[in-house]
Design a protein around this nucleic acid. Structure first.
Length: 344
DNA sequence: AACACGGGGTA
DNA sequence: TACCCAGTGTT
C-alpha cells in the first residue's frame, strides 16, 4: 500500500517543526498561509514571530493592517498578509472567533484556496482531503510518469483526482504531510535522493530513469523591466514616505516619492517635470545610487535621489517620518535595503 | 485560461 | 541563468 508506506516513512523521518506540535486551526492556518510559495526555512522565523505577537485569531484581528504587514515584511506576496488580516477579522467578528472545521467552509475564506483548505481540514480536523502542492505534483508525476502540464487546467484536475484516490482515510493528516515532506527532502526537483526513497518500488520515473522529465510545466512569460526613480526627500532628518495603493506590486507598503520612467534616466529635467508641487524649496540634490530588485514578473531598476529641502508645507508634513517611525512602517525590500545601506 | 503577485535558495 | 518554493485572486 503506497499511502501506508508514506505515512510510516513520515512518522519516522519528519522534521521537528513548531506547527506540527499543534492541531489548533489558527496556528495551522498561520503556518499554511506563510508557507505558500515559501520554503520552510524562510517561513519558520515568521511563523514564530506571528504566534508570539498574535496569540489568538482575535489578537490578529484587532491589530492594524500596518502592523500585520510590518510583521510580514520581507516574506513577499503581501496579499497573503492582507488576506490573513481580513480573514482574522471575519472569523473574529462574524464567526465568534471560531475557525470553520470543514473544507467546504474553509475554502470560502479569503486567502484559502484548494490547497490550504485541504491542509487545514485534514491536519486540524482529520478530514479526508488530499493536498496538492508543488511537492505533490512532483512526486505523483514521477510515480505515474504523468506528462500533463501541472499548470494547465486539465493537469490541475487530473492531479487532484489522483491525489484524492491515493490518500489514506485512516490518517489523512500524516499522509498529506508525508507526501509533502517526501517531495521536500527526497523527491527533489534536481538530483532526487532515490536511494533513500521509501516508495522507490512504485516509481515509474525511477524504473525508466526519467525523473528529469517530470513534472511537465508550461513555460511562463519572461519578466518586463521597469525603472523606478525614488526621491529620498529629507527635512530635518525626517523622510517623505508614501503608502502604495492599487493593484500594482507592493500594495500597502511604504516607499519614497516615486517617479516611474520608461527607461533608465539621470536626466534631472525629466524628473523635475514630475516633482510634486510641494517640493519647491530645495536646498540640495545629491548623487543618485542604483539598485535592482527581481520580482516574479518584473525586474525593477531603481535609482535613489537624495534631496534636502529647507521648508515644509503643513499639508504634507504628516507624510514625513523620523527614523524611529520609519522602523515601524511596512516597507518592501528595495526601500529596506536602501535604509540599511545608508544607516537610516 | 492566462496572468500577477516577492524574495531567496540552488545547481 | 533558470527553476523552484507546503498557491491564491483577478482578469
Amino acid at each position: 500500500m503506497l499511502s501506508k508506506k508514506i505515512i510510516g516513512w513520515y512518522q519516522k523521518n519528519k522534521r521537528d517543526l513548531p506547527w506540527r506540535k499543534t492541531q489548533d486551526p489558527y496556528k495551522v492556518w498561520l503556518s499554511e498561509i506563510i508557507l505558500q510559495q515559501t520554503r520552510v526555512e524562510q517561513g519558520l522565523p515568521y511563523y514564530n514571530e506571528f504566534v508570539k505577537k498574535f496569540k489568538t485569531v482575535n489578537d490578529l484581528a484587532t491589530a492594524s493592517e500596518d502592523e500585520v504587514l510590518r510583521t510580514w515584511q520581507g516574506l513577499g506576496y503581501y496579499s497573503r498578509a492582507r488576506n490573513l488580516h481580513f480573514t482574522a477579522q471575519h472569523v473574529s467578528n462574524n464567526l465568534n472567533g471560531v475557525f470553520p472545521s470543514t473544507y467546504k467552509e474553509l475554502i470560502k475564506l479569503k486567502g484559502i484556496g484548494a490547497y490550504t483548505a485541504a491542509a487545514i481540514s485534514s491536519i486540524s480536523f482529520g478530514e479526508n482531503r488530499a493536498v496538492v502542492d508543488g511537492n505533490v505534483y512532483r512526486v505523483l508525476s514521477r510515480i505515474y510518469e504523468i506528462d500533463t502540464p501541472i499548470n494547465s487546467s486539465k493537469g490541475i484536475k487530473e492531479f487532484a483526482t489522483i491525489a484524492q484516490d491515493l490518500i489514506s482515510p485512516e490518517n489523512p493528516a500524516d499522509y498529506n504531510q508525508g507526501v509533502m515532506e517526501l517531495g521536500a527532502r527526497v523527491c527533489l526537483p534536481r538530483n532526487p535522493k532515490c536511494s533513500i526513497c521509501p516508495i522507490i518500488d512504485h516509481c515509474g520515473a525511477y524504473k525508466n530513469k526519467s525523473h528529469d522529465k517530470y513534472p511537465v510545466k508550461l513555460k511562463k512569460q519572461k519578466s518586463r523591466n521597469r525603472y523606478f526613480n525614488y526621491l529620498v526627500i529629507n527635512h530635518n532628518n525626517s523622510l517623505y514616505l508614501n503608502k502604495r495603493e492599487g493593484s500594482d506590486v507592493w500594495n500597502g507598503l511604504f516607499e519614497f516619492f516615486l517617479i516611474e520612467t520608461i527607461s533608465a534616466t539621470e536626466d534631472m529635467e525629466i524628473l523635475e517635470e514630475n516633482f510634486p508641487s510641494w517640493l519647491n524649496d530645495i536646498k540640495k540634490i545629491g548623487n543618485p545610487t542604483s539598485s535592482k530588485q527581481v520580482l516574479s514578473h518584473q525586474n525593477i531598476y531603481a535609482k535613489f535621489w537624495p534631496i534636502e529641502i529647507n521648508t515644509l508645507e503643513k499639508t504634507i508634513s504628516e507624510s514625513f517620518y523620523s527614523s524611529y517611525n520609519i522602523e515601524q512602517l511596512p516597507k518592501h525590500r528595495l526601500i529596506e535595503k536602501y535604509l540599511l545601506d545608508n544607516n537610516i
